[in-house]
Design a protein around this nucleic acid. Structure first.
Lengths: 189, 189
DNA sequence: GAAACTTCTTAAGGTATCTTAAGAAAGTAA
DNA sequence: TTACTTTCTTAAGATACCTTAAGAAGTTTC
């Protein structure tokens, strides 16, 4: 796991072995079973999670009881509700394991201490946050300019065997369409 | 202008006067007339802009000639096309002044040099990027859960006299509806 | 102050997508 | 295997929003 984290972080900034040790030691390992919650809706999100293995989703349940998935996370992604984590306000989204998932986690305070101990990490997270921002903007652009049929095929073509790992009603929720309509899309090729 | 920038940056990290001097000296002042382009669609975005005064928009023109506004920027916002700026690829969005606008600008290289000279700036931009990400996620949530009528009133109620500074067809484009439909929304209060 | 443009509104007909409801299929537990 | 739960599909009627077109209102230019 330490190697996996080191490989990941070194993609952004070259860290010394001792720095990796400091970072790894500040993180805790946790495993969540399928359907277990990393964060309940309306709780304050206290951690940032780095996914070692598995698949998670972030979603809100609206007043009609409909789930609305904003985000999937897979191996080598950081997951949190940033708004809640940074501002320490209740999260509008829950975070839940779709598969059995192992993560490394860190609290806000521990992360801030770590930034001071390992200043390069500040740069790494600046870059990671920029990449995340770019990913969201790309998703928005696809969302804005494509119809749901194209969005669906775009999604399942981009992430290999995604459609096998995730039930279709979750894909529908992520694409912001109903499962019924997704079913119709799939029927017509 | 230097004072405005200093006040802005000190909201995130406490800078020394000399650090502010270094940052300010690395930035160039530019003024764009109404409708003038800071960046044309399909060009590589070479700068990050800090808006001193004015109002700009970022938009793409699709194959049917429809404009699609992804973002407005006002005083004390950094604006760029991050995907294009970071990856040095053609931008799918143009950036244009809606009002006469004065900005401070910096190129990618100069910014990287500046990060090394003033390491605190790395932290400031890490935080600013996080805030930007949160803002986009909030916009997405509003977009997902509200109908266009509610999105419209939410927008004009949130930013004071925004509806006066921006023509309605631009607001429609930002809300991802047609001007005709916006007109109908406004008619029914 | 008229001409020329830009922006806003109205209206009619069309389409993507939703809602509801019910049954089929698949997966899980006993 | 049977029963139970979860997931997927089908179909019919409803609606949010679009397209096109044209005229009204507001702005800029000469």
């Amino acid at each position: 796991m330490k190697l996996q984290l080191a490989n990941y972080l070194n993609r952004y900034v070259a860290f010394e072995t001792e720095e990796i040790d400091l970072i790894f030691d500040a993180l805790s390992t946790e495993t969540f079973q399928k359907k277990e919650f990393l964060l309940e809706q309306y709780q304050v999100c206290k951690h940032r999670y780095f996914i070692i293995e598995g698949l998670i989703r972030s979603f809100r349940t609206d007043s009609n009881g409909n789930e609305n998935i904003s985000l999937f996370g897979i191996e080598n992604w950081w997951i949190t509700n940033l708004d809640s984590f940074i501002n320490e306000t209740p999260s509008q989204n829950a975070i839940q394991a779709v598969e059995k998932t192992t993560v490394l986690s860190i609290s806000k305070n521990d992360l801030e201490v770590l930034y001071t101990k390992v200043p390069k990490l500040e740069r790494a997270f600046r870059i990671i946050t920029e990449k995340t921002l770019i990913a969201i903007q790309r998703k928005d652009e696809i969302y804005m300019k494509q119809h749901s049929k194209e969005r669906y095929y775009n999604l399942v073509d981009t992430i290999p065997n995604f459609a096998q790992r995730v039930p279709q009603y979750m894909i529908a929720s992520y694409l912001d369409i109903t499962p019924e309509y997704l079913s119709e899309i799939r029927k017509n090729r």
